[in-house]
């Protein structure tokens, strides 16, 4: 069982690679397309995977950012993500992992509670983003955001590293919004 390690390969020049992991194929494909359409000075590689571990017969460049996409409407995608998390080395969680939750807007169809993903992200000390990937405009803005994060994680932005970004994005336990 191969475990993903962040710095086990040398980076290719001017290249940044992101790995999107989720059971939702269609959404990932669309997100990947939006990301590739973004205007970016570096060359982007987008890898899509249903789950980890990745097959070891393919050579791939160094992975700079892993995004786990959880669909709040299906418990299966959460389980899948939790399984895949075991195949990621601990040093990846120093800012090179991010969680993305989709479908939070329609509360009636959410089978996973909002707080579950929040605790998951908190346990792994990684940022959690919300986005409704089915809507085109929201997807495009999220793609822009991911591209910026990717550039930072790949070291293409001088002066800021993945770890410093992580410390900026860190949020302590937030109070339950039901109290409002």
């Amino acid at each position: 069982m191969s475990v993903l390690r962040p710095l086990d390969k040398l980076p290719k020049l001017n290249t940044a690679t992101i790995l999107l992991v989720s059971t939702e194929d269609a959404l990932l494909q669309q997100l990947a397309d939006s990301m590739l359409r973004e205007d970016c000075a570096s060359q982007l590689n987008v890898h899509l995977a249903k789950s980890l571990p990745l097959p070891s017969n393919v050579t791939r460049p160094r992975i700079d950012l892993i995004v786990f996409v959880v669909n709040l409407h299906s418990k299966y995608s959460l389980q899948n993500v939790e399984e895949s998390l075991r195949h990621v080395d601990a040093s990846f969680f120093l800012g090179k992992v991010c969680f993305l939750a989709t479908g939070a807007g329609q509360e009636s169809r959410c089978s996973i509670h909002h707080n579950t993903v929040v605790t998951l992200a908190h346990t792994y000390r990684s940022p959690l983003l919300f986005c409704d990937l089915k809507m085109e405009d929201f997807r495009v803005t999220m793609a822009q955001r991911l591209v910026r994060m990717l550039q930072i994680c790949a070291g293409h932005t001088p002066g800021i590293s993945a770890l410093s970004l992580l410390s900026l994005l860190q949020s302590p336990e937030s109070p339950s919004l039901e109290d409002l």
């Binding site: 020049l13 590739l36 000075a41 060359q43 987008v46 995977a49 249903k50 097959p55």
Partner: peptide, 18 residues
């Protein structure tokens, strides 16, 4: 199961160094 990596054309450039 992994899909083949999709290479981008950032800013319309092909491959690495232009």
């Amino acid at each position: 199961m992994e899909k083949q990596p999709t290479d981008s054309e950032g800013e319309g450039e092909e491959g690495g160094q232009p």
